[in-house]
Amino acid sequence: MTNVGPAVVPMSLPGGRSARGLSHHVLSVLVENRAGVLARVAQLFSRRGYNIYSLAVAPTDDERFSRLTVVVDLESTPLEQITKQLHKLINVIKITEIDPADAVEQELLLAVVAADVSSRGQILELAGIFGAKVLDVGLERLTLALADTPEKLDGFTELIKVFGLIEVQRSGRVALAKLNRGGGRGGVSRGKAS
């Protein structure tokens, strides 16, 4: 019965793969900030057999609305069917389709890495190069945070794996359309219909 609060939910429903291939597409969905909206969206995807690769939910600057950033796997269904079905939800106000090529995207990674005296320096150096922050320091471990594009996160993970990854958590992606240099923003917005 709680509202869609601030939450970042990484999800990998059946079919979601780790590779961010071309079959992924980002939908930025503006919804009414009401009880059960997230359940409605999730149930729609599940009932129609659409795959969610990742999902991020947070309130917007206008408290009446929340924004869902859904990375969908397009192998199963054409994007058009997904957006049309989403639009049928009464609480969905607006959907913006963002082609990954025309988007700025960020995702958050938290990683606990084995870091004894011999490796700590190298790890910190790598963190410095990628712009990762040290969130926590233990005797033989470090917790690092990196917010960047999904590709950068992949690259960083690849490199620090060598030292021993103890735990990794990634958020879902959030994305906005790239700014149009001529003014305004890109992305295809679809208005409502029944």
Binding site: V31, E32, L89, I90, N91, G191, A193, S194
Partner: peptide, 8 residues
């Protein structure tokens, strides 16, 4: 007033 329900 249902901003998310405007049938064409």
């Amino acid at each position: 007033d249902l901003p998310g329900f405007k049938p064409t």
